[in-house]
Design a protein around this nucleic acid. Sequence first.
DNA 1: CTGAAAGCGCTTACAG
DNA 2: CTGAAAGCGCTTACAG
Lengths: 368, 368
Amino acid sequence: MESPATISDVASAAGVSTMSVSRYLTGRRVQRATEIERAIRDLGYRPSAAARSLRSGLTGSIGLVVPDVTNHFFAAVVKGAESVSRGLGYTILLCNTDESAEREHEVLDALHGKVDGLILVPATEQAESTVDLRRTGVPIVFLDRDLRSNEAGFDVVLVDNAGGGRKAAEYLLALGHRAIGEIAGPLDTTPGRGRHEGFIEALAEAGVEIGAQHVQVGDFSKESGYRATLRLLATSPPPTAVFVANNHMAIGALRALHALGVSIPAELSVISFDDLELAEVLTPPLTVIARQMQEQGALATRLLADRLAGSRGPAQRIVMDTHLLIRGSCGVGPARQAHRPRRASKTNRQNSTPKSHQYVKTPRGDHK
Amino acid sequence: MESPATISDVASAAGVSTMSVSRYLTGRRVQRATEIERAIRDLGYRPSAAARSLRSGLTGSIGLVVPDVTNHFFAAVVKGAESVSRGLGYTILLCNTDESAEREHEVLDALHGKVDGLILVPATEQAESTVDLRRTGVPIVFLDRDLRSNEAGFDVVLVDNAGGGRKAAEYLLALGHRAIGEIAGPLDTTPGRGRHEGFIEALAEAGVEIGAQHVQVGDFSKESGYRATLRLLATSPPPTAVFVANNHMAIGALRALHALGVSIPAELSVISFDDLELAEVLTPPLTVIARQMQEQGALATRLLADRLAGSRGPAQRIVMDTHLLIRGSCGVGPARQAHRPRRASKTNRQNSTPKSHQYVKTPRGDHK
DNA sequence: CTGAAAGCGCTTACAG
DNA sequence: CTGAAAGCGCTTACAG
């Protein structure tokens, strides 16, 4: 394999200086444009990205750091970001942090000097990492999660977490639920805390108290959603409805409910934050708080690109809206079931929940 | 913001030459190691990736080109590749092609000079693109799809598509199905053709013919799976079982069946190639041909890394195994239903399918 | 409009 | 082990 042609090779072949070739490449007017063009084609010349980068200090790349691409939300974010960035001439360097601050640190290290800017879903809200981030020297846009103290003035593209949690609560309340559970995300993350607070606030405003044992905190993983569901069902009395704070925990919750043969919504109403790809073909179809996922990635990318293009001004804080997608996983609660009042049995504890709430393993998948 | 420290700054501060700093950075023995170390820390020195890249001709990055990250299979591949590559010190440049050869061309162009090697899921099998690929000059590993004429000797990491298609067919045959349909992928792609051929071959060996109208070809998208399902159900008589050749078309198929109120597996048995995240909580749980998805990305990355490390030798062709995951979406077919023989009504055409196969829209999600 | 010179920040030979 | 020089392939001023 012969070594690739350089700008000098092109210049010699075209009988001009390297400067003329450089000018031609950047679209400026040159005399011997045709000769240069032919030389480039004949030699198969491609400008060296490394040399350009060294000279200009620019890489033409954007770093995108997410917890986990296999989470459909982040996959959608990546797609939105990739689509916009390609349109603007940037390529995307993708990294997973697996929700680990340590990995995040490694990853930001590995990205140093390889990107002109960063879109980051921080693994932790701790301000400590801010110090590291300022050091990177490149513009950063936070996506979906903020830092606890964002004094550094980073741009952020969030979703209205509190509003989404509130919508979930209000919907369940309107259906007549009063014993309402929550599978919350980590309370030290923006979406975990925001969704939780909006949810709890709306319940409180309606005068509905949620027992401590009805708030089970997970870590946004499927496994934690599964375990939290088991814990929730073991309470006495168990809730008649549950809000699951993200898609992966919802998948875990659905697996647990399926394994236990809990009927949705007859025995438990379920609503999740973020839509699932198969939500509508589940039995029953899952009711969710949805949002525009790809658009969130696209927005963050446009914001970053503006900064890269020199836009100054105060840090932006974009909050995208959520919407309630009513499908079939939430049923009418006790407060609206006049003919079937719910009995609050104070005597029944732990292993002796009321018969109607006993979760027994029943065969599934054999009914039509 | 002051400009970042260079190797010269470190050298001055430590009272040595830039060469000693360079030596120190590459882990070789130096006299004033402690002084250099302190200077690096004090100045917050980070070597310039661009300068290193220009000098060494290496980028420390791998390009990963997939059709669509929001497809769970490719997301898993990305995760596997990212994990392995980070362990080896590479970062991942990710691009989507949206199954378009034109976009693939653009993307490969954008990646030129930014990566040391490429993991590519080619949008098309056409050999024509091979020419372009050789021009890139970097090692390439094909993932999941091969080129029609891979004379160029690229490494490939495939899954046993024909074997998977065969397993699906054999399972449906064993259940007693004889009127079997297929929603195939594009026949000019490796997985599309491979799965189709394995499937058809197994049916032929069993002496079961599949009518032309029972093979509906899609483009691997959800929408095409939806439409193909409608076409399949419009045949007369419709099949009693269907094999869907990928995950996204399976999602589309499930949506169509759900919309039409077709009961699975009573009216139609369904098996898909590639598992779905919610497969087990569907009603009924979906039976699939599964494979190790992340591992496929990881394998391709290791293979590429070996090449980048100088490994020569003939092109490798790794074929990963599939396995049948029996859940609940396939029922017993006519050949094993002695008490309920299936009537082959030659007189019924098109708009007059037998009553038992009339697909009427019925409400869903309200049954337990 | 054009070209000779300098330099972006490193590392690879080459002498000491 | 150490350092002065050269050069990777471009582009930014600077003269003509």
